[in-house]
Write a protein that binds this DNA or RNA. Sequence first.
RNA 1: GGAAAGGUAGCUCAGCUGGUUAGAGCACGGCACUCAUAAUGCCGGGGUCGAGGGUUCGAGUCCCUCCCUUUCCA
Length: 679
Amino acid sequence: MTRRILVTSALPYANGPLHLGHIIEALQTDVWVRFQKLLGHEARYVCAEDTHGTPVMIKAQSEGITPEALIARVAAEHRADYQGFLVGHDWFHTTHSPENRHFTDLMFGRLKAAGHITQRSVRQAYDEQAGMFLPDRFVRGTCPRCKAPDQYGDSCEACGATYAPADLIDPRSTLSGSTPVWRESEHLFFALGRFEPMLREWVASGALQAPVRAKLAEWFEAGLQDWDISRDAPYFGFEIPGHPGKYFYVWFDAPIGYLGSLKALCDAQGLDIDAFLKVDSDIELHHFIGKDISYFHTLFWPAVLHGSGMRRPTAVHVHGFLTIDGQKMSKSRGTFITARRYLERLPPEALRYYFAAKLGPGIDDIDLALGDFTARVNSDLVGKLVNIASRCAGFVAKGGGVLASELPDPALYGEFTAAAPRIAALYEQLDYAQAMREIMALADRANQYVDAHKPWALAKDPAKAAEVLAVATQGVNLFRVLMLYLAPVLPQMACKAAAFLQTPLARWNEIDAPLLGTPLAPYEPLAQRLDAKIVAELVEAPLAPATAAVKPVAVKPAAAVPAAAVPAAGPGTITLDDFTKLDLRVAEVIEASEVEGSDKLLKLTLDLGGTRRTVFSGIRGSYAAASLVGRKVVLIANLAPRKMRFGVSEGMVLCASGSDDRVYLLSADDGAAGGMAIS
RNA sequence: GGAAAGGUAGCUCAGCUGGUUAGAGCACGGCACUCAUAAUGCCGGGGUCGAGGGUUCGAGUCCCUCCCUUUCCA
């Protein structure tokens, strides 16, 4: 029976670039959708740009452009990144669209008509200078409990306390720096509590993973509160019909954006959207999300759908967060890898495979361990999988380029195809990690087969040419099965493999019959090995010691030796290897300026023979900015970039220093040019 | 503060409802092979399964306490 399935992943927000955390979700979703399509099901994957809200409005203001211009630009970047990772959205829309407005108004109207919308006054922080109400995150101040300074208005990162912005000691607006005042304003609320029985029944229907159900139980226990769905002007979003000056809260119209995107898809393809949305729809609706937005997707969203007379989600699949080498990925910690940064350096399928190899059905966090990533991809994809085709192709070519007319070991082939239901079940239940393990175990078996039959030895005897071709044919067929199993994860490689095999890899049951007596195209490498050095470049800036956050960059050369190698007592002896870890370069100073707010730092723009670097250097006490332009200084070019209050410093300029307060810049002699290596 | 998940070989992880000498991949050592992108195959070293109690004929697997990590809290 053909299933009809609508799938979504969370909408990326239009105020910043995609990072690998977005990508892991998109990949989990994309693999599932591709798998469903491979089975022959009618699956559609829609997503959209999440465009509304204060952060977008503020960011656009700060860039001096309209919100529309901002979201158009960011959406284009997001699309390019998704495409770069081979994420096959059937439709990618935007929440700032007529379709989304249609559904937002429609659903609000129905909720209101059914009496699910209430109205009451709310006291909220107001920035008189900026002329607007402030979201909690835009108010900062001292934590009322632990007295930690500079905390967000909703919770304290230091002690974990949660509170209201009004509880903060010495609150300040992050927009203007002024002290907010407290003003009353009428807000609209969605009466979530009324839906508790419906939600309990929905949760019991098996739409959620066990840990998520447990979380829901906790929320039910705490009691469901009304949800504030309105915001005051100025706000970038949809004005609420019948409530001038009030706008829908971004989180109200964001999930509705799924439907807006679906509508655009249906309009384009002539589909009947009601078939998807009617209460008794037999089309499945699957949402893929991160655990941070569970509340919106497991409570508000089903309730809003139900209250609007629409169907509820079939399932909400929650995944964990991504960590990098065990560390939380975040800008402030410097372990932030953007999708773009990855794509500029490495092939998308390497990460697709690695994430698949680590994604299970649970909500545990997924670690991208860079060393493991390199080893795993090189070993599994190149050493095992691709190797099978690579080592057999030559024998087929020499034997005439056409596969043998029968398999020498049909039982082994049968063993491979017999794994199909098991692997399908694993894909279906999102246990990609187990699926990858099973597939790689089969790849081992295929290599063992080739090894046991030694076609290279047989080939020495011209009389055994048929035997050689038979073994190679077996190997190619085993490879074909594996490649089909991996097609949801590695669509590009599957495509190249199909070209090699001269037959499509488009249907799950295509492998029922082996490929016999047909020609092969010349073999071309299907995947390249990863270079550990390039992989290491993914990490932008390792965590600097917290106490050094606002200290100027150190200028003592000795401190530049890799920290781990230096005991507190002193540098000690290092090996040549240690030294060669340093990438020292001649760099020409192009611009130099004083850093406002710092009495020690100069901001230097350096030329390295075509590429530019920005470095903050603590030499203001010894050098005037203007005197530096044109000098050729010595730069540690591979020092991890470091975030400072004033920007990111991408290296360190070497200086000598003694007992006086001065530092003395090192320079290269005349004739040296920016970018030259120093050794 | 409340809650959840996790702590298993150097690294990344499997180990279902408790049951023979705890597994895989990578890394490491040895051997073989040379068709293949220094790829492959075979053999091997390596773990008191976070700590301490308890239940049981028997616990990595159940219970309690503690330690550590991570996450969630509209």
